[in-house]
Amino acid sequence: MSTPLEELFIQARAENRAVLIGYLPAGFPTQEGCIAALTAMVEGGVDAIEIGFPYSDPVMDGPVIQAAADTSLRNGTGAKEVFETLEAIAKIAPTVVMTYWNPIERYGVDRFLAQIHRVGGSGVITPDLTIEESENWIMASKAHDTNRIYVVAPSTGEERLRRVTDATSGFVYAASLMGVTGTRTSVSSGARDLVARVRSVSELPVAVGLGVSTPDQAHEVAQYADGVIVGSAFIRLLQESSSLAEGVEKVRELARELSKGLHRP
């Protein structure tokens, strides 16, 4: 059975456009504020949502997401709040959870996936889970009809790219550059090469993340990738706004602008 996320990529491919994926950590800026901002993203034109499970030691994240995760953890966000957010948002868009591995292991692999599936989630992005440590994860995610989304990097060699994408379902998350999350003035040229290399070993859709923040960048990436992932830019709008309402409106506006450039000629 295919997940809502897989169906979304099939539909977008038919429409000759890329999918826009927006990210926020659960519980940021508050539990209700996060749900409001994600809802505005979807209303503004974001196709799919990635909900972060805030973690105390986010080694893949730059300062913007670190600060947001800190806020979220101080708000007391845990598994319960992540699943509540997922349940609310999965009703309006295909939604995945992105989490470092330890919170999953602590919750219990099988129990975690059962809960993702129960509340309507499509899958889980696991940035620090290597395929060598994935045996239980792969079995359990198949049992619970949940997509396993791995991150590949410009440094990932050919043979390994094949093995990682073989373990992946839903889409392949291509990290545009060697580095951590955050906005950049330009999207690394390595992204286009990496997407091409993924395509040479896999039929799966490929989405590009890390450093995509402006409509121009989203348009550029949409020309060669199946998906565009934007996180830090949304977070910054919420951090810089004087009120939640103002932040939510800015998020909606950015989603609208980003979504305009996704079609290919």
Binding site: S155, T156, G157
Partner: peptide
């Protein structure tokens, strides 16, 4: 691959594997 019973291993971003 660097395991000590159930412990050890690698839980890192793919960028570091190489």
């Amino acid at each position: 691959i660097g395991h000590f019973g159930p412990y050890g291993g690698r839980f890192v971003p793919e960028a570091l594997i190489g």
